[in-house]
Simulated scan of single mutants.
Amino acid sequence: MTRLKTLKWGDWLLLALVLVLISYIWLQISDVLNYRWRWSLVPHYIVGWHDGRKEWFLNLLLQGLAMTIRIVIFATLLAFVFGLVLGLARTSRNLVISLLARTYLELLRNIPPVVIVFIFYFFLSAPLIEFLGLERWGRLIARSGDYQILTLLLGDMRLFPQLVSGVLVLALFESAFIGEIIRSGIESIEVGQREAARSIGMSRIQEMRYIVLPQALRKVVPPLANQFISLIKDSSIVSLISIQELTFKTLELVASSRLVFEGWITCAAFYFVICFLLSRAFARWET
């Protein structure tokens, strides 16, 4: 209420213009496109009722959201490990290691994400999954019905190869940005501290472990948090390689029900709520 009282007439005018714009778009969709809104059907695609089993189940949108959350969590952990290695490699005194890391970072940061996703999927992820036999392993577990903990953590084991593909592709893509963030954090540490560490006989590894990295990681927490939120939004890219996350499931919903606007607006709302809540949580954490 106190914030509402601080709004001036210009703020109210801006809010009124936004509402007018939304209303105009809504009318254009309804009248010009002759679109019939069917919002009453949307809840069924979030949580459905199975008449045979007489129980509720997670329908398309929540299935996709669950897969998105799994992919984002595992991809974040893996991307941080890759990014930390890349950040250390970028600041290495070895010219070859530094150049290789920089080449990787520059390539990924200057090529469209869609191209990178397809390259990683067809040349790395898919051959690796086939080589390790992950698809056959996932099907065996799905048929056995055991390992409920694995099912809880990884979802439907028949889709385990897709989960691995999505995690690998996103982790390798996002690691380039995380690597640059960590590099900037390492280089922000004063040279005097590193010289002092060497003067007391610390090795390069000890210098990084005890002096540089603890300070650098504290400094890069805010940009890493922002990158985590970006990863959630970037996860929609893997729908292009048939990973059944939220965007892919929304495509299925739209194709099967013709709920074009309702489906995509609901999908956008899911992404917005997750990213907004996380951004507010990280903002509180930083303060």
Rank of each mutant, 00 (worst) to 15 (best):
Leu7Trp: 08
Leu15Trp: 13
Ala16Val: 10
Val18Ser: 15
Gln28Ser: 06
Asp31Tyr: 09
His44Arg: 11
Trp49Met: 08
Asp51Asn: 09
Arg53Thr: 12
Phe57Ile: 14
Leu58His: 15
Gln63Ser: 10
Gly64Arg: 00
Leu65Cys: 09
Ile71Cys: 09
Phe74Met: 05
Thr76Phe: 06
Leu78Ala: 14
Thr91Gln: 10
Asn94Trp: 11
Leu95Phe: 12
Tyr104Asn: 05
Leu105Asn: 13
Leu107Lys: 04
Arg109Asn: 09
Asn110Val: 12
Val117Glu: 14
Ile119Gly: 12
Phe120Tyr: 15
Tyr121Lys: 07
Gly133Gln: 00
Gly133Arg: 00
Gly133Glu: 01
Arg139Asn: 04
Arg139Leu: 05
Arg143Phe: 04
Ser144Pro: 02
Gly145Ser: 03
Tyr147His: 11
Leu153Arg: 00
Asp156Met: 03
Pro161Trp: 02
Val164Asn: 02
Gly166Ser: 07
Phe173Glu: 04
Glu174Pro: 00
Glu187Gly: 01
Val191Asn: 10
Arg198Ser: 06
Arg198Gln: 09
Gly201Pro: 02
Gln206Asn: 08
Gln215Asp: 08
Leu217Met: 15
Ile229Phe: 00
Leu231Val: 01
Lys233Glu: 04
Ile241Glu: 09
Gln244Lys: 08
Leu253Glu: 10
Ser257Ala: 05
Trp264Phe: 11
Thr266Ser: 08
Ala269Phe: 06
Phe270Cys: 03
Tyr271Trp: 08
Val273Asp: 02
Ile274Gly: 05
